[in-house]
Design a protein around this nucleic acid. Structure first.
Lengths: 99, 99
DNA sequence: TCTTTATATGAACTATAATTCATATAAATA
DNA sequence: TATTTATATGAATTATAGTTCATATAAAGA
């Protein structure tokens, strides 16, 4: 496993629209699975699958409270990074990924 | 097309090991297709396909000189971003993607 | 103009990832 | 302990993306 492969995997991990939405939500504060599913209007199992991907990449962590499982972003610097990427994309008019 | 979809697409665009390697090379200076293929030990057509993906996302630009086509990164801030992502990943011990 | 060199392209194939559905697990409560 | 609530999981399906191969295009030089 090279550094480039690792970095690419990380980028693909956050490079999925639903996961990106999840990340932006759990960057603001703890959210439980059902809450995320409702907000994003997606099936619970789908959200669960995406959360597993994020967790396996150490991008989020979870904490069980009663029946609910709360997720949060692993580190605020990740949230900051995502914000910076978005800002740069806008600044550079990137990836209206034409057509 | 939402912002999240756009951002996710951009992240997937750079989230492929060979494209990431290409980006790091063309961040240092202009490179022509055959050169990239040789350095990365990949087929010319494969590199060409990847370059097209990067170009369609406005991440690289090209310039023809005689028969050769030179590629470079669209903006130095993109190179800087990639460096920062790598640095943060190392700092956070992210994505040894422990399966 | 014929040949060589460099790159791009499209189709076919292969691999990877996302989604759905049914169901399992497990905690809380009646 | 039977039921409800919340989440996770695995298999099957579908969608997306990467790779290869053959070939097209186009510039340069013999």
């Amino acid at each position: 496993m090279t550094v480039d492969e690792d970095q690419a995997r990380f980028l693909r991990c956050i490079g999925e629209p639903t996961r990106l939405q999840i990340l932006k939500l759990v960057a603001e504060g703890d959210r439980y699975v059902g809450e995320l599913a409702e907000i994003l209007n997606k099936e619970q199992s789908l959200i669960s699958h995406h959360l597993r991907v994020l967790k396996e990449c150490n991008i989020v962590k979870d904490k069980q409270e009663a029946q609910k499982v709360y997720y949060r972003i692993m580190d605020d610097r990740l949230a900051k990074l995502i914000t910076e990427i978005e800002a740069l994309m806008i600044e550079l008019s990137l990836c209206k990924c034409q057509q």
